[in-house]
Amino acid sequence: MDTFASTIPLANALRGHFTRVVLPLWRGPGFNTALQLPYEAVSAKNAQPLPAERYRAMACARQLFVFSQAGDAAHAQTLFDSLMHTFQDTRDGGWFYSVDAQGAPLDTTKDLYTHAFVVFACAEFGRRSGNRDALEVLHRTSALIQSNFAADGDLFNSALNADFSAVTATPIQNPLMHLTEAWLAAREATRDNAFDAALRHLADAIAENFVHAPTGCIAELPIGADDNRLEPGHQFEWFWLIRQARTLFDASGLEAALNRAFGFAQQYGVDKETGAVCASLDENGRIKDATQRIWAQTEYLRALASHEDAATLALLPRQIELFQQRFLRPQGWYECKTPAGEVARADMPSTTPYHLATAFDALPRR
């Protein structure tokens, strides 16, 4: 039996668990019907929401993506309406980072990570539903990112204050990666060529400022920054992203770099016995943070599924089995584990279904 055929039933089992367990959790006990928002997290013990201290726009947007992709049009519409009514800053523009337990603005920072996820979620919702308001939000938020978050060298600052008058955090890798993801989704949803140019410029800037030349890895901080780190999960995530529009990224050299980064992350960041991916490495491949976070495992699955080397692709069925055994449970999932397999974080955050959904969607189907 070839790798593709042997992987299908394993992938279907993951998708079945997601449909039977994860989605109902966030339609039901994980959803605050009074505020019409997903709770930040639910307890792994009883699947009840943890006491609410805040609700984040990014979490709402991720859930909007998940339920849009799942074809739950009604719940997706509810989440889109909540995103608009709860997190939109109608005075200064853009999106609040969070609101408090009563739904009032809490952290009014204008955060690139949040804005990227608004674009990403609205692209998925708009593409699947035809909702013109969502596509308008996509374009408006993208334009705001380009005008208000712009930094030197085609990069974008990570955060500004509420009225965009002061930069509070300079460019770092993770928001830029999710902006790449968002603009790829926007390009697909709108067929607007303007996103092609934006993606090319961004890819060139990332290649110039974040690629660690010896390994090809994309570092978390600009090259040369103190205490930099390389996250294996992000190498796998970038590996998959760049393959979604290869011709756009040809000139940047990112694909060649990430081919090397995949090998480095796999060699030093994946446990040989358990298949679990660690949180971070230093530039020599030594483990800096051994925590095994579920999102990094899902990105390894997605990267393996998109790999063109037959020997690497052949690892996918076994990796799915290892992931299922170590990180899924009948009532949900384990968010973080130690190398010894102990649970390092007991709750289940509302942001994780996005990682599960994107990974499982990339796995083979009948």
Rank of each mutant, 00 (worst) to 15 (best):
M1G: 07
F4A: 07
T7P: 04
T7R: 01
I8Q: 11
I8D: 02
R15I: 11
T19D: 14
R20Y: 01
V22H: 01
A34N: 14
Q36T: 11
C60V: 14
Q63R: 04
G71N: 00
A76M: 10
T78D: 09
M84A: 13
F87L: 06
G94K: 00
W95F: 10
S98H: 00
V99N: 05
A101T: 05
G103P: 12
K110S: 05
Y113G: 04
T114S: 12
A116H: 02
A116Y: 01
F117T: 04
A121S: 15
A123K: 00
F125N: 01
G126C: 12
N131Y: 09
D133F: 06
L135D: 03
E136P: 00
V137W: 05
L138R: 02
L144C: 14
S147W: 04
D154I: 06
L160F: 08
N161T: 11
A162Y: 05
D163F: 09
D163Q: 05
F164H: 08
I172V: 15
N174D: 11
T180E: 04
E181N: 12
A189F: 12
N193L: 12
A194I: 11
A197D: 13
R200H: 10
H201S: 15
L202R: 10
H212N: 08
H234M: 08
E237I: 13
R243Y: 05
A245C: 03
T247H: 14
F249G: 14
S252M: 12
L254P: 06
E255W: 08
E255F: 04
A257W: 02
F262E: 03
F262R: 00
Q266W: 13
V277P: 13
C278T: 07
C278E: 02
A279K: 10
N284C: 09
T291G: 14
R293N: 01
A296M: 08
Q297L: 05
Y300Q: 02
Y300K: 05
R302V: 10
L304D: 10
H307Q: 08
E308Q: 12
T312F: 03
T312V: 15
L322M: 02
W333N: 00
T338H: 11
P339Q: 01
E342S: 15
V343Y: 00
A346P: 02
D347S: 11
M348V: 01
S350Q: 10
T352W: 00
T358F: 09
A362N: 14
L363Y: 03
P364S: 07
P364D: 01
R366D: 11
